[in-house]
Simulated scan of single mutants.
Amino acid sequence: MNHLPENFLEHALSIDDTFQFHCNQCGECCKHREDILISPFDLFRLTRYLNMKPTEFVDRYCTTYIGQNSRLPVVIFKAVGEEQVCPMLQDNHCSVHAAKPTICALYPLGRAVRVEPDGKPEVFYFLNGSTCGAEDETHTVREWLSEFDLRDSTAWFLAWQKAISKLSPSLKTMEKLLPPKELSMLYAIVFKALYLDYADVREFLPKFVLNVQSLQKQIDTLIDKLMPGGNANEQFVGSDGRCYRPACTGHCGRAGRISVHRHGWIG
């Protein structure tokens, strides 16, 4: 799952194509792993399955960082022990099997998006290589997704790729415009919008789309204000409505949003 196999486009699988694989539940694919990604969709499913708050789950089981290329927050499982084992592996079995992260549920498949000649994005699958299991069972991709209730995950995957394509260049621009402290606060707000802000939500995707649209709109507003010719005396506040400029002690803007308010740059 670390790298795309060579010529993977030549071996692309559609939703009803078949492949051969049988999981023998050895647990080997859960060891020596420091790359198990937890998407916002995965976090939503996992925390509901375990009846945990997202912040509690991330603090206990995950590590976060800013993606080198995307510049978006990335969440991965925090491997444990000498064998660098996934924290969800217990007695060689996945303790969250019914809600396991998509990257694990897809194994040994990978998933990607390509743009067709008509400009429409198409999700496709490919064999990602396996270090365990056997090839004595035949499955369709559709059947494999159904086993883990991921039949509707294609729409989420497309929405996530669209969010990355839109937010990534905007965040790269903000990195050039904001001082380190303000940038850190901005990333905290981005993380909350993408991964955490789903309280009392039954359907993940509609709320995710709204969060991304709101976030993009507000970041674009900040860029307009901070670019040369804009009003550099405007600043943002956090999701709690508090101004995060170090010199400011007041509450400005509306809770739950990045808001622009009049405040002079200090220092």
Rank of each mutant, 00 (worst) to 15 (best):
T64M: 13
Y65C: 09
G67H: 09
R71K: 15
L72V: 03
P73L: 06
V74F: 05
K78S: 14
A79R: 10
P87Q: 00
P87H: 03
Q90G: 01
Q90F: 08
N92K: 13
C94G: 03
S95K: 04
S95V: 00
A98Q: 13
A99E: 05
P101M: 04
T102I: 12
C104L: 06
C104T: 06
Y107K: 01
Y107A: 00
P108Q: 06
L109K: 02
A112P: 00
V113R: 01
V113M: 00
E116F: 02
D118I: 06
D118H: 08
K120G: 05
K120N: 12
P121M: 00
E122C: 04
V123C: 06
N128F: 04
G129K: 03
G129F: 04
T131W: 01
T131R: 11
E135W: 04
E135Q: 14
D136C: 02
E137R: 14
H139I: 01
H139N: 01
W144F: 03
L145E: 03
S146F: 03
S146V: 01
R151L: 14
D152F: 02
D152A: 12
T154G: 08
A155H: 13
L158N: 11
A163S: 13
S165A: 15
L167G: 05
K172R: 15
E175F: 08
K176V: 00
L178C: 09
L178A: 10
L183A: 07
M185T: 11
